[in-house]
Design a protein around this nucleic acid. Structure first.
Lengths: 127, 127
DNA sequence: CGGTATCCTGCAGGATACTG
DNA sequence: CAGTATCCTGCAGGATACCG
């Protein structure tokens, strides 16, 4: 065993080894819209236009890019119903749901602590 | 009540109201280094140079910026020991620890699913 | 050791226009 | 309706040099 047994995150944390596992996932969570999209899909499948309206501020370009990227990672499933006009639905995959659960925890945290954070910022900025 | 009772995240999700709560926090988690730093501090206080070495790839500028920002948000506490050479320690605040716990969940998820994600990407890219 | 201060660049992501 | 194709810009963040 050459070190790094079990889930030894702390020491391989930011290295850009070919196998750097963290960056990949963190970038996914880190980008501007993925978390928002996943959270929305957490309450059930949505059409493209529903997402677009719900998120409000996202460009068509970024919504598509985000969805494609989530699909590529196997987190979201895209279903096309070739009617006219076409209808496209997006839903979390089972794996996507497990990530969505984590994300949900994050959002809950944000809700619960935003007052504290805001206050802390004011204090900090006053000095 | 004009709508939006309790923690009604789903509908106010991306709006840039003056009070948009989510973006603030997500940006914090979303930036390139915060999550990494917080996770490191999750295993106990660290000196500046320890963090720098542990993260490997982070620039001095970004480490300082990240730490200042976490401090501003009341998530990390900075302790200066004015010896010579100076010694500066960083530790999670109690609130910081609660966020660190969420982050930790995210990282665990990443560890557990990176194979699946990698495989999914290969499949997707092959078409 | 633990930072600032500058300068510089890539690219995330917005705006806009067109399409099956 | 659900996208693609382009063009364009701000700023996150790297590199480098200097300091108490």
């Amino acid at each position: 065993m050459t070190r790094a047994r079990h889930t030894d995150v702390r020491e391989t944390i930011g290295e850009d080894h070919p196998t750097c596992r963290l960056r990949d996932i963190l970038d996914r969570v880190g980008d501007k819209w993925s978390v928002l999209v996943m959270n929305l899909l957490g309450s059930g499948p949505k059409r493209y236009s529903e997402l677009q309206r719900a998120i409000e501020g996202i460009s068509q370009r970024m919504l598509t890019l985000t969805l494609r990227s989530l699909e590529r990672d196997g987190l979201v499933e895209r279903t096309v119903t070739p009617t006219s006009p076409p209808r496209v639905d997006y839903a979390l995959t089972p794996v996507g749901q497990t990530l969505s659960a984590q994300v949900s925890g994050l959002i809950t945290w944000a809700e619960q602590h935003r007052e504290h954070v805001a206050a802390s910022r004011l204090r900090y900025d006053a000095s």
